[in-house]
């Protein structure tokens, strides 16, 4: 397990060394902070605005971090850093797991920074107190983002960077929009086909919080379980593709 953690740590530290990440985080925090100023133009909706802005920014940061999986494998392949690592007694599966865990780690860190920033800023402005519902919604957003990272790692094993990113985003968008079609359709076949796609709709639960609702614990548990199973599937698929790959 040590070598998996080494790969994860290396992936995370490489991303953490990117100045763009800090720039992004700083901008996002500034945007959330500036949410307080827009109270007047939203005509009395500043509380909702701040909350939604915070959630939107957390989600954007999460998605951007998750897309690192799409970039990382093709980049390592292109820069040939992968050759040195894979010539070590480290299975390719373990390498993929390490990459995935590293991206999950970096996503968690950056989303936590933005999430805490959002909670602190809105609490300072006296708009709402941090509560459990916000945490639950953030967990669900994180789950969705991790699923995106899992999709990205599969696409990254055989596509170029930009193509993998594009396809990951298309999958993200499509699955989100289709999530509820499945629930409303009468055709069971269509339903089952749509249920094969990752469930990104769980991140819509921020709507519940913004409206003062309560997210069921069952939903949170289901979201986490779903994400775990989906990530596992995607890692096995990625492993099957990647083991045939020539590290030229």
């Amino acid at each position: 397990m040590d070598d998996v953690m080494v790969i994860a740590q290396n992936t995370a530290s490489r991303v953490l060394r990117m100045k763009a990440l800090y720039f992004l985080l700083a901008i996002v925090i500034c945007i959330i902070a500036s949410g307080q100023l827009y109270g007047d133009i939203t005509v009395g909706r500043e509380k909702e605005y701040s909350l939604d802005l915070g959630f939107a920014m957390t989600m954007i940061v999460g998605v951007l971090c998750a897309l690192v999986t799409c970039f990382d494998l093709p980049r390592e392949l292109r820069e040939k850093t992968m050759v040195a690592v894979l010539s070590k007694p480290l299975g390719r599966d373990r390498y993929l797991i390490g990459k995935f865990l590293g991206v999950c780690e970096i996503t968690l860190i950056s989303m936590a920074i933005v999430g805490v920033g959002m909670l602190v800023l809105t609490a300072m402005a006296g708009q709402f107190r941090p509560n459990l519902e916000i945490i639950k919604a953030l967990i669900l957003v994180y789950c969705a983002v991790v699923q995106l990272a899992a999709v990205g790692i599969v696409l990254g094993t055989f596509l170029k960077e930009w193509l993998a990113t594009l396809l990951a985003l298309v999958t993200f968008w499509g699955s989100y929009a289709l999530g509820y079609v499945a629930a409303n359709t009468t055709s069971t076949i269509l339903q089952k086909i749509i249920y094969l796609l990752p469930n990104f709709a769980i991140m819509g639960s921020d709507n519940v919080v913004a409206r003062g609702g309560i997210i069921e614990w069952r939903l949170v548990g289901g979201g986490v379980l779903l994400t775990a199973v989906y990530s596992l599937i995607m890692l096995i698929v990625a492993g099957l593709i990647f083991r045939r790959k020539d590290i030229a």
Partner: peptide
């Protein structure tokens, strides 16, 4: 022990 043709390693380390 293997030395790759182009010594491309994680340069940030």
């Amino acid at each position: 022990g293997f030395l790759p043709e182009e010594p491309a390693f994680s340069r940030h380390l």
